[in-house]
Every structure is written in structure tokens, then in C-alpha cells.
Amino acid sequence: MGAIQIEHYLMLSAVLFTLGVLGVLLRRNAILVFMSVELMLNAANLALVAFARHWGQSDGHVFVFFVVTVAAAEVAVGLALLVTIFRTRQSINIDELRMMEG
């Protein structure tokens, strides 16, 4: 019940991040995996903003800006790839995308 300290935000960020990791590891749907990655990025953004606020520096905001941009670009390309793969394999089960086996 005290003032919100930065630790709370960081904890929240950690929890969200972990959930994102779990999503990456546990879900088989490739789209879901992407989304979990997005969640991880968002959690990192939260931590960055929290720190920026804590120290009064807006460098953290800039970093977040970049992260968002890169994430967007990554999602675009990644989903495009996914679509292409789906076209050939008719499946987006990442367990079936095992070309790197062995």
C-alpha cells in the first residue's frame, strides 16, 4: 500500500516476460509463438520506461521507440515468412518445421 516503487514495475515486467517465454516454449502454433515474442518485447519496454522514469532520463523512451519499430518490422517479415511456409506445408505447427534436424 505504499508508493509504487520502481520495483513493482520491474516485477511486473519480469512476470510478463516469463509468461512470454512460456508462450514461446509451450505453444505449437507459430502465430502464437510470435505473439509471445511480442509479449516479451513489451515486457522489456515496460522495464525500460520504468527505469527512464526513475532516473528522469528520456533515453529509455528512445530505446522503447526503437524496440517498437524493430518489433513491428520483425513481425511483418516473420508473418510473411509464416504465410509462405503455410503455403507449402499447409501447417504452421512449428514442431513440423524441423528442417534443421540433426
Partner: peptide
Amino acid sequence: LDAPFLALVQVAVYAGAVMVLF
């Protein structure tokens, strides 16, 4: 957290564009 700009960016880009793409 006193980051209004980023909040907007978050909504506009992330929620608005990326998730739509999804």
C-alpha cells in the same frame, strides 16, 4: 510512468498495426 508519447505509440503501432497484422 509519465511516458505519454510512448503510450500513444504503443497503442498506435503495437496494438493498432502489429496486432492487426497478426
